[in-house]
Simulated scan of single mutants.
Amino acid sequence: MIKRLFQRFVGQPDMPDVAPDSPFIAVGDIHGRADLLARFLDTTPPHPIVCVGDYVDRGDSSAEVLRMLRARPDITCLSGNHEVMLLAFLKNPTGEGPRWLHNGGLQTLASFGIASVSQISGAEALMRARDQLYEAMGPDLIAWINGLPAYWQSGNVAVVHAGADPVRKLADQQIDTLHWGHPNFMKTPRVDGIWVVHGHTIVDAPSATQGRIAIDTGAYATGRLTTALVAPGRTTFTEIT
């Protein structure tokens, strides 16, 4: 089901109206919900699409989500912290594996047909799982994930995964901040007039306030994938269930 939640005009005393160069649609954290992603794409969205990252982990169909997105070069896909953890596992399975598996990596492995590992597996099992994952994904898909940008901008609207340091220009952000967030992001309004669309932090309902547009409604757990149509002067949220 596709449900428009509400249309919000976002002019505020301390922020300019949102003013992208042209309308676009931002998609919240997908986390393995290929069914919701397919439902959204089946609507033939009329504007460019930008995904905020976190395509893998927690949901059951991470492999399918990655393959769907990689097959759509017209969609701008950003990297999230869960893509960072997956890549770290491929490079250092014994050092990075336990954290990734604890945060949903087990579901990603299962989506690629790998089930011979757990959160308490030893080094040998983790190395074996890494080798199996590399073979299942293939170098082209891994290279695609490696090449995902950390942010995208149109006019005075930027899209990132987790957040941004409110006192740094977008071009000067630390990449870890864009992937994992910043302690002052939710506390301190930006002073440069840039609106930041983000996921990463699950919210009960999407919102556009104080220069932040939050669209992660926890699709893997709630069954609600949120998108935001960002156009000059307004943001329209839509829920895919």
Rank of each mutant, 00 (worst) to 15 (best):
M1Q: 10
I2H: 14
F6N: 12
F9E: 14
G11P: 03
M15K: 10
P16H: 07
A19S: 13
P20W: 09
S22D: 11
A26C: 13
V27H: 05
A34T: 04
D35P: 01
L36N: 01
L37W: 03
A38Y: 04
F40C: 02
L41W: 11
C51Q: 08
V52G: 00
V52I: 15
V56P: 00
V56I: 15
R58H: 08
G59Y: 10
S61L: 10
A63Q: 02
E64G: 00
M68F: 06
M68N: 00
R72P: 00
R72Y: 06
P73C: 05
P73W: 09
I75S: 07
V84G: 08
A88N: 12
G97A: 06
H102R: 15
G105W: 14
Q107G: 03
S116V: 04
G122S: 06
L126Y: 14
I142F: 05
W144T: 07
P149N: 10
A150N: 07
N156L: 11
V159W: 12
V159H: 05
A164V: 12
Q174F: 04
Q174T: 02
T177H: 09
P189F: 08
R190L: 06
H198F: 08
G199H: 08
G199L: 10
V203W: 06
V203A: 06
D204F: 04
S207L: 14
A208K: 04
T209G: 03
A214D: 09
G218M: 03
G218W: 13
A219L: 02
L225R: 11
T227R: 02
L229I: 11
T236V: 15
T236F: 09
F237W: 05
T238C: 09
I240K: 06
